[in-house]
Design a protein around this nucleic acid. Structure first.
Length: 869
DNA sequence: CCGAATGAAAT
DNA sequence: ATTTCATTCGG
């Protein structure tokens, strides 16, 4: 249907006749995080957990099957036969290095160029990728490989292209209408779930992957994890050697294999498994609390179930919470929030028993209401309202994120763990988050994994008790000022660029940045996402900060506990369904340990961290939907995520920073320290190469320069200068020209030839330039921003070190293009170009940008010139 | 749902 | 050599 040829998508359920729809994929992947839909709410996550916990869960049939490879034959496909699942099941192919890169940086790009659409962003990303330092690239490549390997292990026979197959079928009812995000859910559930689920119920609505998926996920994830884990470790150890991958792989493989085996071992036994599951689902549910934890992690002991929640809850906290609320939603804490909510709910129940929940208020009101409630609850008693809250939440968890958090805090009571970490967070947000985390987490552990290792240090500050918001400041301070934002940041960077830079990245931050992806709310869009609810703080700052680093936080036990309790309650009450979402989150938060983890590095910590902070945070907030993804994927996802996060993220600044250094003096906004580090500098020769490259690129595609390019150019120019500026280097650094060697592939320049169908856009304009469409499309929108940004970049660069660059550009604010370019380009040439451009464009675009465009042209020319030189 | 990009795999 | 599909998300 649909127009498109293959389309099957929409029909998701629909079967398809179509060819292979992509839909079916299971997507085990971790990263996929985003997808998520919303349905997640419904499902019961618990099951997942439980299942997960059990080692062999089972359901996995599909999974296992795949893993096994089947029983013969082609794995996946077959499934289909068995269950339809197969159809759905098909896992999505693992992302390649570039995709990983895109995923990681797209948000940044978008941040810079809000107006730019994804296509444009993709282009930029491609450019970045092209110039990315080989080393950096290698990281992504390795990860991709790793990912792929793990994936393959998990799905032995996986074919990138589905055998024609059947199509999909499986109409899953709508579950995924959108994308199929979680295909698997549907299926598995069927098997396993079927039995159990029904009873429960209502939840049923569909999907669910509740059990099945999770289960699977669990299995997979474990596998993956293990594999990754192994790999990672290895990688870390020998990060240097290129071949690492292989070795790692092997190692990983074995581990994975084992895991796989384990899991697969179960496969057939579906029955048994199923039974188990079923059990779990229902029976266990009630008990869930303990069981999951226990089973899940042997190590971790779930032990005390809900202790935390009840306990603490200092008044102070409450105040904090309020503050939090005020701020709006923070992302990070989402998980916490949920947890809190859960806790709260549970408490409430206990106390009050369920009460009616009015819920009348409209959503909007809800938030407010909630806040109020929260407060009230704290002080006085939990009222029925709380439940209301739950419901509301349910309805719109996302929106309320902030509020909920607050609630959470109060409810759960912070265990008091003081940990704050935050490397860099600066803004209130951070502090808030930290606080929350701390509370929630209680124990936060270490973070992570080997790769990231360096940074960690969560040094807890002592927890002074949270004096309301003040805590925040204190915290910050104590931590050291990361937040200082402006000034401080710089300094910090200077101090330890390296650390800061560490590729590792900030999981949290990342997410934040990405979060926006939530997609659900367009309106909210970036701003909201980024910006904290409360206006007060500068939104930008927050963003930056967030982006900059927020880390995650994790809360495990407490949440878990809470969750368990809550869960129980809910279950008993039947609310489970509704809560499910929450639970998820909670669950997620709790994260269990999972497996192995051999070294452990990955394991708990990672996810812990990931989970709460990172992943959930934003996403959840906005939509809860996201959760699901998380839940579904669960740890696996998280791990990947974590790993993913560990990948270095380069700041756009590098390329271009919009910011405005000028505008704000502070770099605060503009700068985000995000980027790493890469010192990079290029030698002249390198530069030259770079230019060549660029030139070539342009030749091939004349497209617009895109920010990147410009940036690059700028960079190149500045580079030398910058070199010293290393400190700052941050900005410049990222990409370094070096790469060219060619080894990498020249990809950048030559974009893949257009497919026949696409060719259209290739048409050349009269001038010879690219077709207007292209040029315009990308160019225009970006132009404005780009231009400035470019300049900015320069400025920044300059700032960093050399003033030369700056000076020039600064002067000519007007003509960015020209100004930016270094003197050495022939002005005349530039001028001509510009003139031409202007003329042409002028007609078109009247105002604005004529320059901008011209600039582009100019740059191109310039570049070319350079090349020649 | 297409598309822009890169890459891996399949055909 | 070409085609699929993975991720993103605005049109």
């Amino acid at each position: 249907m649909k127009s498109g040829g293959r389309g099957a998508e929409p029909p998701v359920e629909g079967e398809v006749s179509g060819k292979r729809p992509k839909r079916k994929c299971l997507q085990w992947h971790p990263l996929l995080s985003k997808k998520t839909l919303d349905f997640s709410e419904d499902e019961e996550e618990d099951d997942e957990e439980e299942l997960e916990k059990h080692p062999p869960p089972f359901c996995g049939k599909s999974l296992s099957q795949e893993a096994e490879g089947g029983v013969g034959t082609e794995e996946e496909e077959d499934d289909g036969e068995e269950e339809d699942s197969s159809s759905e099941q098909r896992a999505r192919r693992p992302m390649n290095a570039f995709l990983l890169f895109c995923k990681r940086h797209r948000s940044l790009v978008r941040q810079e160029h809000p107006r730019l659409d994804n296509r444009g962003a993709t282009k930029i990303l491609a450019d970045w990728w092209a110039v990315l330092d080989p080393k950096e690239k290698q990281k992504y490549t390795d990860m991709a490989k790793e990912y792929k390997d793990a994936f393959m292990k998990a799905n032995p026979g996986y074919k990138w292209c589905p055998p024609s197959n059947k199509s999909v079928k499986t109409p899953s009812p709508g579950a995924n209408s959108r994308k199929k995000a979680w295909p698997f859910s549907s299926e598995p559930p069927r098997d396993c779930a079927a039995s159990k689920k029904p009873a429960k119920a209502e939840s049923v609505p569909q999907i669910n992957f509740s059990m099945a998926d999770p289960t699977k996920m669990g299995g997979l994830s474990m596998l993956l994890l293990a594999g990754e884990h192994a790999l990672t470790a290895r990688e870390i150890a020998s990060k240097k050697s290129p071949s690492v991958a292989d070795s790692a792989k092997q190692t990983g493989t074995s581990d994975l294999c084992q895991l796989v085996e384990v899991s697969s071992g179960t496969p057939q036994p579906t029955t048994a498994d199923t039974a188990t599951e079923g059990k779990v689902s229902q029976a266990d549910l009630s008990e869930i609390c303990p069981s999951p934890g226990t089973s899940r992690l042997g190590a971790t002991d779930p032990t005390k179930p809900c202790i935390d929640p009840p306990v603490p809850r200092p008044p102070e906290v409450s105040s904090c919470s309020q503050a939090t609320v005020a701020e709006g939603r923070l992302s990070g804490p989402t998980a916490l929030l949920q947890l809190a909510e859960m806790c709260l709910a549970s408490e409430a129940k206990k106390t009050v028993t369920s009460a009616p929940r009015p819920r009348g208020q409209s959503p909007t009101a809800a938030s407010t209401g909630i806040a109020t409630e929260t407060v009230a609850g704290e002080q006085a008693t939990p009222d029925p309202e709380e439940e209301e809250e739950e419901k509301k939440r349910e309805g719109r968890e996302a929106a309320e994120g902030g509020a909920s958090e607050g609630v959470v805090r109060s409810a759960c009571g912070p265990p008091a763990k003081p940990c704050k970490r935050s490397p860099s967070s600066e803004s209130d947000l951070e502090s808030l988050i930290d606080t929350i985390d701390a509370v929630a987490k209680g124990s936060w552990g270490a973070e992570d994994d080997g790769e990231e290792v360096p940074r960690k240090k969560p040094r807890p500050l002592s927890d002074p008790g949270f004096p309301k918001r003040k805590s925040r400041p204190n915290a910050r301070k104590s931590i050291k000022a990361q937040e200082e934002e402006e000034a401080e940041e710089e300094e910090e960077e200077d101090h330890k660029p390296v650390e800061a830079c560490v590729p590792i990245a900030f999981p949290g931050s990342d997410r934040e940045g990405e979060v926006p992806s939530v997609k659900a709310e367009p309106s909210a869009s970036a701003e909201e996402t980024l910006a904290p609810p409360s206006p007060l703080a500068t939104p930008m700052k927050d963003e930056d900060k967030a982006a900059a680093k927020l880390e995650s936080f994790g809360s495990r036990k407490s949440e878990r506990t809470c969750k368990g309790a809550l869960y129980k309650t809910l279950v008993s009450e039947g609310m489970l369904t509704s809560l499910r979402a929450n639970v998820d989150r909670g669950r997620r938060a709790s994260g269990r340990g999972n497996v192995s983890d051999l070294e452990g590095s990955w394991a708990e910590e990672s996810w812990t961290f990931a989970q709460s902070g990172a992943s959930s945070s934003k996403k959840l907030k906005k939509l809860k939907s996201k959760d699901e993804s998380a839940p579904g994927l669960g740890r696996l996802e998280e791990e990947f995520e974590k790993k993913f996060n560990s990948l270095p993220q380069y700041s756009p600044l590098t390329f271009d920073r919009k910011s405005t250094c000028v505008t704000k003096k502070k770099k605060s906004c503009g700068n985000r320290a995000e980027d790493p580090p890469k010192p990079v500098r290029g030698s002249p020769s390198q530069k030259k190469n770079l230019f060549h490259k660029i030139v070539g690129k342009y030749k091939h595609r004349k497209e617009q320069p895109t920010t990147t390019d410009k940036a690059i150019a700028a960079q190149a120019l500045t580079t030398p200068l910058a070199a010293q500026g290393a400190t700052h280097g941050g900005p410049c650094a990222a990409l370094y020209p070096e790469g060219l060697g060619g080894a990498e592939t020249l990809v950048g320049s030559q974009k893949r030839k257009a497919r026949k169908r696409k060719i259209t856009h290739l048409v050349r304009a009269a001038d010879g330039r690219l077709s207007p469409a292209e040029g315009n499309r990308a160019g225009e929108p970006q132009d404005q921003e780009e231009k400035p940004s470019t300049q900015t970049t320069l400025c920044n660069n300059a700032r960093s070190g050399p003033q030369e660059a700056c000076a020039a550009p600064a002067d000519t604010a007007d003509r960015p293009g020209v100004s930016g370019l270094p003197a050495f380009f022939s002005l005349a040439a530039l001028a001509e170009v510009a003139a031409m451009e202007n003329v042409q464009r002028a007609q078109h675009t009247a105002r604005l940008p004529a320059e901008g465009q011209s600039k582009e042209m100019v740059q191109n020319h310039v570049l070319i010139s350079c090349g020649d030189q």
